[in-house]
Amino acid sequence: MRPLPPTQRPNWRYIAAEMVPQWCPASARDMHYAILGCEASLFGDSTAAAMRTSVISCDRGVVIIRCIRGTEPDVETVLATVTNVEGAPVALHPFATSGTIHGLKKKITPRPLPSDEGNCEIGNNTYRILGISGQKVDLVQQGIKQTTALYLNTDDLEDF
């Protein structure tokens, strides 16, 4: 079958969004359904269908989202309303937009994975220490039902 000529293909835009916290264990599929749910909730199914949003990748704290050109502000608004993915609290902060994935990837700086730095005890709770780049430290307690986190800096860790 002959491929669709470029003029008849949809004009896609690709948006890169920073995931906070970086260590959020969300898969691209879960992220896709979370974004679609928020889209339908905020703008309705009709507008959501017009945006044709899909998640291309979700890796190392960066999500790449594809949408139809012209709907980027609406998609960014939707991303601001994403609060959790499969029960894990997460925030998405768009930082770059491009017409090609290649162009977008040039704007993404590689982020180091959080380093596991042992455990610490606060009160009766034991937290896993995750060192994020720079001075940031996340304390994570993996419970049966949910993950509890404390977000602090290395200076705060000394205070605790």
Binding site: E76, A80, Y151
Partner: peptide, 10 residues
């Protein structure tokens, strides 16, 4: 929480 903050653009 950290995850509740939004940017000025948002």
């Amino acid at each position: 929480s950290l995850t509740d903050l939004r940017s000025t653009r948002a």
